[in-house]
């Protein structure tokens, strides 16, 4: 049925061949120019002076320090946001309550805030001149111009990513499975581990992948709160900026190529997730459909 429709669409949309070629041509040109070329350029410039120069650039202690801080940031932000995503999706998808739509909008809010403004907020909240920042500094705790500021700014910009993947997924899955498990005597944790988690694992994984990628690459917000202290508060994107501004292009692109690789993994992950969830939906529709495989032993 579906493929039939598609074929017909192709027929119905039978523009003259010339129009079609122009449309396809401009698509390929536009995407090639704006997407493919910048991506290729990253790797081309990184390897301009050969593999050894590339390897040397990545092995620099400052680059390694930046990598370490970036990974630490990921290790803080991703699990916290994953935990939040699961909790929020559970509350929103499994229960009815007033104000649900407002809550969903609030969860999306960080996406509408410019990264620079996000960073600004935390400087105002935790900076040395603020009441809280001063109080914390007196106790020897520095947030801004130190790793904790980078962590919290990154948590903010990656805040909605896991929740956004899980909320629609869990809403689509419904409550039947969990209710069945509870009616069979499963406790809360058993229900979650044995029933819910296996059902949402691909969505959760993809949300975490998005979160990791975004956390590694965040620039604007981190830039405001970091103070650009070499070897201490430089994440990989900040290190790229410094190298680039010092005209050390090969080194800048070498570090950039690592982040570009991560983003390619994300894109691949998206395809896998879409494929998996389509399978899931096919499973499900076969599930409630009337026919399914042939009835064999009904009597």
């Amino acid at each position: 049925m579906l493929s039939l429709k598609k074929n017909r669409a192709a027929n119905a949309a039978s523009q003259p061949r010339l129009v079609r070629r122009i449309l396809i041509g401009s698509t390929v040109l536009f995407l090639g120019l704006f997407l493919l070329l910048p991506l290729i350029a990253v790797f081309a410039y990184a390897l301009e002076q050969g593999g050894t120069a590339y390897w040397m650039a990545i092995k620099q202690p400052e680059a390694l320090a930046a990598l370490r801080l970036t990974l630490m940031t990921v290790a803080v932000a991703a699990p916290l946001n994953a935990l939040f995503g699961i909790a929020a999706a559970w509350a929103i998808a499994k229960f009815e309550f007033r104000g649900k739509n407002i809550l969903i909008t609030l969860i999306d809010l960080p996406f509408t805030v410019s990264p620079v403004i996000a960073g600004a907020m935390f400087v105002l909240l935790f900076g040395a001149r603020s009441a809280m920042g001063g109080w914390l500094l007196d106790r020897g705790i520095q947030i801004i111009f130190a790793p904790p500021g980078i962590f919290i700014a990154t948590i903010f910009v990656t805040f909605p990513l896991v929740a956004r993947e899980l909320i629609p997924l869990m809403q689509a899955l419904g409550n039947d499975d969990e209710e069945a498990a509870v009616s069979l005597g499963a406790g809360p944790l058993q229900t979650f581990w044995r029933i819910t988690l296996p059902n949402i694992r691909w969505g959760l994984l993809y949300g975490v992948v998005l979160c990791v990628a975004r956390a590694m690459g965040e620039f604007g917000a981190v830039s405001v709160v970091s103070g650009h202290i070499r070897g201490v508060t430089n994440t990989m994107p900040l290190q790229i900026e410094i190298l680039y501004n010092e005209y050390d292009y090969v080194a800048a692109f070498s570090v950039a190529s690592l982040l570009a690789l991560v983003s390619l993994v994300t894109l691949g992950g998206k395809k896998i997730f879409e494929w998996k969830s389509r399978q899931h939906i096919i499973d499900q529709s076969a599930y409630s459909a009337q026919g399914g495989p042939v009835e064999s032993t009904a009597s």
């Binding site: 991506l39 690459g217 692109f253 994300t266």
Partner: peptide, 17 residues
């Protein structure tokens, strides 16, 4: 698949490229 690249590629990387 490439259409999502700007979502995935860190802005600083896109910037210098």
């Amino acid at each position: 698949g490439l259409v999502d690249l700007p979502f995935a590629l860190p802005t600083a990387v896109a910037g210098i490229s």
